[in-house]
Design a protein around this nucleic acid. Sequence first.
DNA 1: ATGAAAGCGCTAACAC
DNA 2: GTGTTAGCGCTTTCAT
Lengths: 342, 342
Amino acid sequence: MTPSRVTLRDVAEVARVNPGTASRVLNPETRHLVKPETARRVEKAAGKLGYQPNRLARSLRTRRSHSVGVVIPDITNPLFPPIVRGIEDALAPMGYTALLTNSDGDPVRERERLEVLRGRQVDGFILGTATVDDELVMRALEEELPLVLVNRVVDVDGIHAVAPDDRRGARQAVDHLVALGHRNIGHIAGPHNASTGLQRLAGFRDALAGHGLAADDRAIVEAAGFTKEAGAEAARKLLDGWPQCTAIFASNDLIALGVYSVLAEAGLRCPDDMSVVGFNDMPFADTFAPPLTSVHIPLYELGLHAGRRLLERLRGGSPPAGTTLLETRLVVRGSTAPPRPG
Amino acid sequence: MTPSRVTLRDVAEVARVNPGTASRVLNPETRHLVKPETARRVEKAAGKLGYQPNRLARSLRTRRSHSVGVVIPDITNPLFPPIVRGIEDALAPMGYTALLTNSDGDPVRERERLEVLRGRQVDGFILGTATVDDELVMRALEEELPLVLVNRVVDVDGIHAVAPDDRRGARQAVDHLVALGHRNIGHIAGPHNASTGLQRLAGFRDALAGHGLAADDRAIVEAAGFTKEAGAEAARKLLDGWPQCTAIFASNDLIALGVYSVLAEAGLRCPDDMSVVGFNDMPFADTFAPPLTSVHIPLYELGLHAGRRLLERLRGGSPPAGTTLLETRLVVRGSTAPPRPG
DNA sequence: ATGAAAGCGCTAACAC
DNA sequence: GTGTTAGCGCTTTCAT
């Protein structure tokens, strides 16, 4: 490799100035301190030599790496690419770079990766992995590491987070089903160790109560994870226990996909025999068979806001702690219909 | 933020040794140079103080950042998450970190991002963005930057690349259609500035010739991009120009999705009226309506191999230049069937 | 086997 | 307005 072989010293020599002066010129904030003519000389030299500042050296000196650690469970989960893209689009214009790592939801691995990132002197973190009582988050809070959570939330003072309004979104889903005429509505909840799972369940209950419907205790089944397989397993349990059910609100789209497969197994048609609503409106949810009615969350914006929030904190601004809730929106497609008469 | 406030010096002081010695202990390769007892003292001190080496400082000194730049068009394209994941899984165990950036296929932006990454002293690059006559790639080659291409290839000596066997994969697709009885097979080619588009087109022609079928010159339409929209536009042109066509081989799955939508517009049913084969077997291709028959490429392995190849080069090994072609595999689903009799 | 010292490339006091 | 100097935290000769 041919790294920035040419250093500031080289530039300074060519421009016949002191390295310090060259540094001032090449730094936007200090540029005004130097006489325009000298500045020009330095810039010419820099251009001619193809000078590229060594940001490692600068970071070592300034104690700011202009990089942030991003930890998510798995980039392969369709939820995350838009979020990550949003984060990057927030960071790049400000000269920040993302160091991306996948934790697979494994706390041990997560801890490891976090330490590695700290070793690399990231200026802050964006975490998409928070569980309800996340120890790492609590420790980060104590150590006052600049940290922003995205998608998932922890209910503790002093946390900065950007997340979808899961509870309200769940209400939108159920309202839709009720409006279609459904009364026996089941819910496949996400794991209770994630705020998303919990909040959507709460919203489900809210909505039912709001419509004066009693939640049948067979109506709610918790899936072991936000996956198709876990969703299928839970769907089987739900259908076995409560065959009267005519509509299912799934805690996310992958779970909904699991519901689809179980319906097919059982010879039930969607939406004729069973309506299904998902959550996330993940990419390609419109290409499923049938196209999935789902609660849309602005994934890209989630990332964008999280990135900006962190940047603001790093700039020394003190945005108030707390959770920013982004609005959801129900997207009605082919997986929901009125219940069968009779 | 509380970065690694505790430095090697602190550790050395507590252990009552010279910083140099502490460094030797904490470095696996030099550890044997120091007396076990002293080593133990140092490690105890490091543990007690919670020492975390500052890798920026180390990198500045050793001129190896242990980070690599990864440039892809867009993480939001379902092709890339598995590739990126593969890359990360190759890098992480060796202590390397990926700096991920999206170029949106914009050469200007790509250049910019590449410069930023160089400024951050990445040890090498993985590029998923190469076009057929990629200037940046050529320049990188001249400068002897450790570089590995992934997915897309450039046909030049000295390049290291890992890609799917597009040409052979295309043959698998067409062979399947011919075996079903199709004779009028169309192809929606990808952009000719990408090796993937070009190779798949070549494979399409190979296969037709192999079966003694003349390629009707209305049979091939080039899409402007690997997107659903571009695919739809090209599909319209193909259908208008050659209504006899009974099967379409699309250069990738997104294009196939565009074909789906045009078929729906035209009141044609898939696979009854028209068979469709895609390429990539992207995540959730099995959930499309109908489930898409597609040429599977091992995306994760693509990333894994690319990552390992780069690592090997960085380790000083000199793996032979050239392209590693990974095998594809046709996955038959519901979008292909024999042509309508008559 | 360890200490001493120099320096990676840069910025930021502090002079003048 | 610019030069001088001193490090950021680490590794690595070179001594001893």
